[in-house]
Design a protein around this nucleic acid. Sequence first.
DNA 1: TAGATTGTTAATCGATTAACAATC
DNA 2: TAGATTGTTAATCGATTAACAATC
Lengths: 205, 205
Amino acid sequence: MVFGEVPDIVVGRLPIYLRALSHMAAAGQEITSSHELGKKLGISSAQIRKDLSHFGEFGKQGTGYRISHLQEQIKRILKVDREWDVALVGVGNLGHAVARYAGFKDRGFHITLLFDNDPAKIGARIGHLEVLDSALLKETLVAKHVKVVMISVPASAAQQVADMCAEAGVKAILNYAPISLTVPDAVKVQHLDPVAYLQRMTYYL
Amino acid sequence: MVFGEVPDIVVGRLPIYLRALSHMAAAGQEITSSHELGKKLGISSAQIRKDLSHFGEFGKQGTGYRISHLQEQIKRILKVDREWDVALVGVGNLGHAVARYAGFKDRGFHITLLFDNDPAKIGARIGHLEVLDSALLKETLVAKHVKVVMISVPASAAQQVADMCAEAGVKAILNYAPISLTVPDAVKVQHLDPVAYLQRMTYYL
DNA sequence: TAGATTGTTAATCGATTAACAATC
DNA sequence: TAGATTGTTAATCGATTAACAATC
């Protein structure tokens, strides 16, 4: 049933649904139900139906959801029915691995720019991309209209990089550095700190 | 004030608080307040005080929190006032970078075992660790009493690895593979899917 | 003391769940 | 038709916030 204020927590579950649907599709499955999906994800079927109802009606009573159709719809809602150019800043150990990771392309993201400030890395090639000087970061992001950036520089440099991204008109930052970034309201940030997730689990041990 | 059922969402914020406190401490700061911490993290001061109140009283009226003391207390609560042995399964691109990442050690985690099922990788060394055959995974985890595992194998193999970990008595799994794992209730899982986070942000673009 | 900040309570706000009519 | 499952409403549950007495 639609519109306006969809809770962020609902938006956050859509990629999870999409991921599960992709696996079902890859296994040749064509139809699923809120019950099946919920069981697979450890979420109640009611929640899945409620979440989806914020955006429209995608299923059929008595039958469930056609997987390909639901995938298309969620991709459209999340705006990953296209391909976003992504810049990656910092190509140390982790950044290098991120740059080589093949899993972005078919889920809506294309790494098109690499940056580092280490003279030993600038000019090097990773795959078919050349590592550019971070000094060119802001102007290049502006020139190429890049809206999505991944940051994998050391924690000490991450805020500064984020500031430059925000000034360059970037709207989404995925931060691999173990530090909480502060950005303007118009910019979204997600933090990817593996240790924080580990610590969250050790509480229960 | 204290005990029993602390909401998981509260537990999940403690590592974020700890991370911010570490940065303050590293900058030489000795005291902070719920207001300052909240501002830095984009969280209300009331929420921070409420969260902490689940575990005890760590501050002083009129003054705030002594950073070193609050760090110690949160580390104790999260059980990272010790060092956990961690096994890493899968040392491809990403796993290799994870194995070399230096940021685990001083936050409570020590990677002590590496596994892969690729004959070309088994026996190789990464840092001072030798890559072991995944065929030995279960028995080795049992023998070494490993409770924490990171999985960075392809999505197609992740569930199988998770199953073996659960059987081996592992209690916490950090999953880098882009798939939702199903595990027994006694096992905690956290998923680290960068693309899911990116998709969550493109919704707002 | 005056100012500041905690820990806690109660009120508000929002998210999840249960239930069911509609309908495939 | 009988069985199944959706989309939606209302009830429940839980988390966040506002406010303030206590007190450093």
